[in-house]
Amino acid sequence: MNRYIVFHERMAVDLGHARLLVGQTLRALMHDQYYFNGEPNSQDVGSLLWQFGEDQTLAMYLLSDGESVGADQAELQLPASFRIEEDGECSWRRENLLAELSSLAVAGKLITQVQGVIDKWPDQHSRLVAFKITFETGDYLIYLNRGDDAVVLINEMPPEVVGVDTRLEVIV
């Protein structure tokens, strides 16, 4: 099965995978940075690769519906580079996200809570749109699907959307 496809029962599975972070010490947090013609795209942080424990990893990534996020322990492959016409090259590099987020000193810190951010639009299924990861310092990071762009928010909740019921799902 394709790991990026959305199906109804998937939310519980992804929340269960993300729960593996609770009680773990973060060793590193890598992300797949998108580049166009050698310049990074700051609008999209790409997929995340959480490294913890002895040699454990957890991948977080966007799903194909443009709204949801997923998580699992399968290896996270960098997307293949490609060209757009003659003068456009799209590529990705795996980089240390914590080095770029100097305001968040959580390497070596304990992850104390993981929550799912669930959006429910009227007359639609609920969607897992983000993960909220809290550290022993009280700082938190939100990995959010913002319409085909992956965004990381530091100590900041996603903006409210009128008409959408948003709730945090505690993962115990």
Rank of each mutant, 00 (worst) to 15 (best):
V164N: 07
P158G: 09
T25C: 07
P159T: 08
L153I: 10
D149I: 10
S68A: 09
L63E: 00
G23V: 02
E136W: 01
P158N: 05
N41C: 04
V170C: 03
D87I: 11
P40A: 11
F131N: 09
L153P: 08
F131L: 14
F135V: 00
Y4G: 00
Y4M: 03
S91W: 10
V152L: 04
F82K: 11
E136F: 01
R19D: 04
V13G: 00
R10W: 00
A99L: 15
N155F: 11
A107P: 06
Q115M: 14
V22C: 11
S47C: 05
G70L: 07
W92L: 11
D119L: 03
D123E: 15
E95K: 06
N41F: 04
D55L: 04
A99Q: 14
A71Q: 10
V152W: 04
V151C: 00
W50D: 02
L104Q: 09
D119F: 00
V152R: 11
H17S: 11
E85K: 09
Q113M: 08
A107W: 01
V22A: 13
M1T: 10
A99S: 14
H17V: 02
D14G: 01
L110N: 08
G116D: 05
L78M: 02
F36N: 01
L48A: 12
Q77Y: 09
N37F: 05
E160T: 15
E136I: 01
D123C: 05
G116W: 06
G70Q: 06
W50K: 11
R3W: 03
R127W: 01
